[in-house]
Nucleic acid binder design. Structure first.
Lengths: 102, 102
DNA sequence: ATTAACTTGACAATAAGTGTCAAATGTAAT
DNA sequence: ATTACATTTGACACTTATTGTCAAGTTAAT
């Protein structure tokens, strides 16, 4: 089970890029990127978009990994985690079928 | 599709309790409880626990509603929402099978 | 018109997220 | 073992989000 960080690091190294190079493209300090790759910090959506660009990763796929990481992390310690996901699925379905009028 | 707020308000009124009475038990201002019931604010986990006590609602069920609300809300606008939930499910399964050594 | 319940909005306090920087550590080559 | 470079670490600052208080406003029932 790969984390977003592991995916990123693998791809960055495969392309022979340095932390500092990729971080510059994201416009953040390399220290943060280092932490993101080791799952010590979470990337922002902005980070994910720019990472998919420079590392030539599929944007949607990376976003899915990013968001599922976040969700899994926030409910993993609950013993009702699976039920939470099931109910969330229903709610998402409902929300998509009944969009809020902005 | 009921929100946590709607569940709470229904139960509170069914028991003839006032906002101020329930809020006191939660140790928060009644203004916040009012907002929670109308989904203008989100409850904390602490709030949920105390609400299940005073309103005699099933703790786990209410927690499931609370967390699924939160998740549905944070991914509903993504078109990959369903995939996110599927992947999150896998990750949760993995995390439960391979607990982190604290 | 009074009263009681609830709602609203401005604001304050606190917590969480996001970032910088410099020093420390690791790693490989000379 | 010294140098050179990449990465990691931790202390700190800045910003944004969350959580709360309070007082004034609204609603609904006498």
């Amino acid at each position: 089970m790969e984390t977003v960080g592991q995916i990123i690091r693998a791809k960055r190294e495969a392309q022979g890029l340095l932390l500092r190079q990729v971080a510059a493209h994201l416009d953040i300090d390399q220290a943060i990127l280092s932490k993101i790759e080791r799952s010590e910090r979470k990337p922002t959506k902005e980070n994910i978009l720019k990472l998919s660009e420079i590392l030539k990763l599929d944007k949607d796929e990376l976003m899915v990994q990013f968001m599922s990481d976040k969700i899994a992390y926030e409910i993993a310690d609950e013993d009702c985690a699976n039920r939470v996901l099931k109910v969330a699925e229903k709610k998402v379905k409902y929300l998509k079928a009944h969009p809020i009028k902005s």
